[in-house]
Simulated scan of single mutants.
Amino acid sequence: MSIAYQLKLPPFAPAVILLSSLLLGGCASSAGSSLMDARAEVPTSQKTSSYPAVFDPSPKRKIPAMTPDERSKLSQELNAALDRAAAAKAQGGPLKPINR
């Protein structure tokens, strides 16, 4: 034996469903244009960027970053600091900061 359940809707239910589908359908489309024009309305992106492209080489410098004299002085300072660190490590004492 089976019992059939019947769903009883109020008489205005089909009208509510139809009206809500029309209202929601109106939100999906923009006024005055079709969905095919959606790409035409999108503004084109600008190709300018503050970052250089990945594989573009950087432009050559007009003046070098360091002169040969500055480079040799920096190399001597680095070697002296490494020698002091090696000597302090050999003595077993803590490293002392350099005051300038």
Rank of each mutant, 00 (worst) to 15 (best):
S2N: 04
S2G: 01
S2M: 07
Y5T: 06
Q6E: 11
L9K: 05
L9F: 15
P11D: 11
P14K: 02
P14M: 05
A15H: 01
A15T: 08
V16M: 08
L18I: 11
S20H: 07
L22T: 09
L24C: 11
G25C: 10
S29H: 12
S29G: 10
S30I: 10
A31L: 13
A31V: 14
G32Y: 01
A40S: 07
A40L: 06
V42A: 09
V42K: 13
P43H: 02
T44A: 14
S45F: 10
K47E: 06
K47P: 10
S50M: 12
Y51P: 00
Y51V: 15
F55V: 07
F55G: 02
D56T: 15
D56Y: 01
P57L: 09
S58W: 10
S58V: 10
I63V: 14
A65D: 09
T67V: 05
P68N: 11
D69R: 12
S72K: 15
K73S: 02
Q76T: 09
L78P: 00
L78I: 11
N79Q: 14
A81L: 09
L82T: 05
L82P: 00
R84D: 06
R84W: 12
A85K: 10
A87S: 13
A87P: 02
A88K: 07
K89M: 08
K89F: 04
A90I: 12
A90R: 10
Q91V: 08
G92A: 05
G92E: 04
G93V: 15
G93R: 15
I98K: 08
R100A: 05
